[in-house]
Structure formats: structure tokens, C-alpha cells
Design a protein around this nucleic acid. Structure first.
Lengths: 124, 124
DNA sequence: GTATCTGCAAATCATTTGCATTCTG
DNA sequence: CAGAATGCAAATGATTTGCAGATAC
């Protein structure tokens, strides 16, 4: 909470004030509003560090981009094949975690992505 | 089942006779044993077509490689952070699917990846 | 002053694609 | 022969990295 550079702080703020699961370059654009001189490389480096330390989540939905999530609570992601949006849904991981342990596997994170068509796209 | 090229057939065979969730280049190596002149581009093209038509599954565990799975039945994947292996675990998707529908979301596929340490790595 | 982080630009590398050729029917 | 698929090699593009200068303590 203290040793953070201005840049890392700004990236965290952006991620914690949205639920849109932005990509690195989207985050870059957003952070540029407060830090116009930040570089894309710095964004990548900090996202990687934050993800490794568990402060944010990295999410791969198979669209060729890595997405990031400031919400580390247990939830599933609904990825719309039509508009590409990613929305959250609460999900109790305990059930899956306990099943996993019967395989001798020690779980630490769960990433659950449901593919389909979102509410908005269904109505059009 | 009939209009398949020799190459596509070989790729399908490789995928259906393993549970190791290989990457494109690993599949390339394996298929070369029966078709030494196959090219990597062809492997990618066929994997993409087979995945689009639903005959195989594409799996992203966030290690920078796309993995492929010849088993399209409902199951979760356990990805070991230590050795990188990916093992299967049966998973009933119905529960998650019905929860998803309450969000107005029409699901078609579920991809559940559990990250952690596998049995073998735990013992070393 | 040392260790860490940054901006910049070049490098990396999995994946995609253009094109001439080969296969299939 | 036409249409589809292939092999090859070059292109693409998200992500990573080297390095010299800035920043923090």
C-alpha cells in the first residue's frame, strides 16, 4: 500500500473502479488520462507484477487478449460471443475445490468462463 | 467423417488418443510421425476449423499457449503451476448453466480451469 | 548511493495469412 | 476442370525486454 509508484497506483485505481475487465491497452488508455506520459511497457510490467502478487486477476477468455480484473472475490465470468463483453456472476468455488482435492490437487485459484450470448445481444 | 483430408484426420486421431491437452506445436510434432511433410500452418488451420465446428475444444490456461482437447464432454481442467500439466476432472455444468440463465445469458460452453499444484508435484 | 521503476524502442514468438501448387472428385 | 486444402515463407500483433535515465529512501 505504500511502496507503490504513481503508475502502479493509477493502474490499480482504474481496475478497481470498473467491472469491464479491460485489456492491457485499454487500461493504458484509461491511465493516460491521469498520467499522460505513462508507457505501455510500464502498464504491462505492473499488470504482470500485480497479477503475480495476487492483487488483481488475469483472465483469459480466448479472444486473443489478456483481460484484467480488480475484483479478486470468487466469481465466474460470462463472455458474450457476440459483443465480447465479460460480466460477472457470483460463484461458490468451495464445491469445485473440494472435488478437486480428491484428485490430490491443491487448488489456489479458480477461473470459470461461460461462453454464450448475453442478455443485451439476445434482445437484438 | 468423410470429407476430411489426410492431415485433418491425423490431427483428430492425435487429439483423440491423448489426454495431455497438447499445444499446436506439440500436435505438429506428433502428427509428423505419420505425415512427415505436414506444415505447421496446416495444423493451425485445421485446429481452428475443428474448434469452430465443435469437434474439439480449445483451452486457454494462461501460459501463453493455446491447448486443444479432443474430449468435448463436460469436464474441468486442473492446471499445475509447477509442472504445467493439465488434467481432467468430471464436472456437472448444469448447476452453473442454470444459474447463468437467471442473468439472461444463453450459455453454450463452459470452461473451468483450477490453478494449483498437482498430485505429483505435491509429493516432491 | 543503491535499488527499484520508468519511458522508449526494438525484439520475441505464437499465430495468421498470401500465394503458388497439389489433391479430390 | 473447379473447389478445397496444402506447404512454404513472410507478415501480424500482443507481449516482453534491454537499456539509459529518473525516482525513492
Amino acid at each position: 500500500m505504500k511502496n507503490y509508484s504513481r503508475q502502479r497506483e493509477a493502474i490499480l485505481n482504474v481496475l478497481r473502479s470498473t467491472d469491464t475487465h479491460p485489456t492491457a491497452s485499454r487500461i493504458y488508455e484509461m491511465v493516460q488520462q491521469s498520467l499522460p506520459n505513462i508507457s505501455l511497457g510500464t502498464v504491462y510490467r505492473n499488470l504482470s507484477a500485480l497479477s503475480k502478487s495476487g492483487e488483481i486477476l488475469s483472465l483469459d477468455v480466448g479472444d486473443g487478449f489478456e483481460h484484467f480484473d480488480g475484483d479478486i472475490s470468487s466469481h465466474a465470468h460470462l463472455h458474450c460471443r457476440s459483443c465480447g463483453c465479460i460480466t460477472d456472476m457470483p460463484l461458490k468455488g468451495e464445491l469445485i475445490f473440494s472435488a478437486v482435492q480428491e484428485y490430490g490437487f491443491s487448488p489456489d485459484t479458480l477461473s470459470c468462463v461461460v461462453y454464450g450470448i448475453c442478455k443485451d445481444c439476445n434482445q437484438n
